[in-house]
Simulated assay, not measured.
Amino acid sequence: MSADTTSSSAEGALRTGEPVQAIDWQGRPVSCSACEFRDGVLAKGLCKPMLACVHDRYAKLIERFFDTNPELSDIGLSHPHFEVRAISVRHASIFKLPALLADPDPEVRAAAVMRLPARQALRLRADADRKVRVAVAARLTGADLVPLGSDEDYYVRMVTARRLPHDMLPMMMHDREPEVRRVVARRIAEDWLIAMAWDEDPLVRLEVAQRLTGHQLAVLLDDPDFRIRFAVAERADPEHLAVLAGDPVDVVADMARSRLTPRQATVIAVDGSPRTGGSPDA
């Protein structure tokens, strides 16, 4: 089978966006005649250019090769192309993977971290590449995660915030990235949650409002963001609703009024509590 031709069945199996020419990772045409798998895998129909090929430059074709021939994955660990090594890790013997933690390519190191026992990921906790540190954060647990809570990369910290034990999350309450603090607000223990009610970012405060008790929501009655006040109006204890019944934003006031007790509604009607009316954009 030549490198630049394929059978009609192979062409039919191609999917939108996949290669139309078999090119290897060095930019050369794939040559089946020179392939080490020619007499075995190829002869059995277990690989094919542009469909499943260990030498192709496209990762998807390499994946198909090893998905079909997982017993060859150990061989792929020493391939000069990093994509082949990284994909081989998924099926290779776990006893051969520790050496890959020192691989020059971060894709390979990250792949090895995801398969090896978590304790082996500790040695890469300070890896120079964020992709590897993200993988490490996804594997470690407990106190081993603490150093990653102050990582320079926000996504490493976000993954860490998703996995830290609840009692360790206070250390990340003041992270410089709002997205990280939102994760913290979703998971932090209730004893600490109210301390985040004064966060400078409204979306963080919204996460807090969705978890505070009806009584605790009183601290957010005067929040400058109508979304937080609406969340308060939805869940606050009834004794706090009268304030929001006169909110200048209609949706907030309507929600608060819909939850008033009959007695509160009567008092407001008699007192004629002011309601200016308005919209979130007013």
Rank of each mutant, 00 (worst) to 15 (best):
M1R: 12
S2I: 09
A3K: 08
D4C: 13
D4N: 15
T5K: 15
S8E: 15
E11A: 15
A13L: 13
L14W: 12
G17I: 01
P29N: 11
L42S: 12
L42E: 00
G45A: 09
G45R: 01
M50N: 11
L51T: 09
V54A: 04
V54T: 05
D56S: 08
R57Y: 01
R57W: 08
K60D: 01
F65V: 03
T68N: 11
N69H: 07
L72Q: 09
L72V: 06
S73D: 04
D74C: 09
S78I: 06
H81L: 03
H81G: 01
E83K: 09
E83L: 07
E83P: 00
A86M: 03
S88L: 05
R90E: 00
H91V: 06
I94W: 01
P98L: 04
P98T: 07
D105R: 05
A110R: 12
A111Q: 09
A111V: 03
A111F: 02
A112M: 01
V113H: 06
L116K: 10
L116P: 11
P117K: 10
Q120M: 15
L122A: 15
V132S: 07
V134M: 08
A135K: 02
L140T: 14
G142S: 10
L148H: 11
L148V: 11
Y154N: 09
M158C: 07
M158L: 13
M158D: 02
M158S: 10
R162Y: 02
P165S: 04
H166D: 14
M168K: 10
M168P: 01
M172Y: 05
M173D: 04
H174I: 11
E177D: 14
E177H: 10
V180H: 06
V183W: 05
V183T: 06
I188K: 14
D191V: 09
A195W: 05
M196P: 09
D199F: 05
V204C: 14
Q210P: 01
R211W: 02
L212S: 06
L212Q: 00
G214R: 02
L220T: 08
P224M: 05
F226G: 05
V232G: 12
D237I: 12
P238D: 14
A242L: 08
V243N: 07
D247W: 00
V249L: 05
V251K: 02
A253H: 03
R257D: 05
S258P: 11
R259E: 03
V267F: 10
A269Q: 14
G272I: 01
S273Y: 14
G277S: 06
G277V: 05
G278C: 02
S279A: 14
A282C: 07
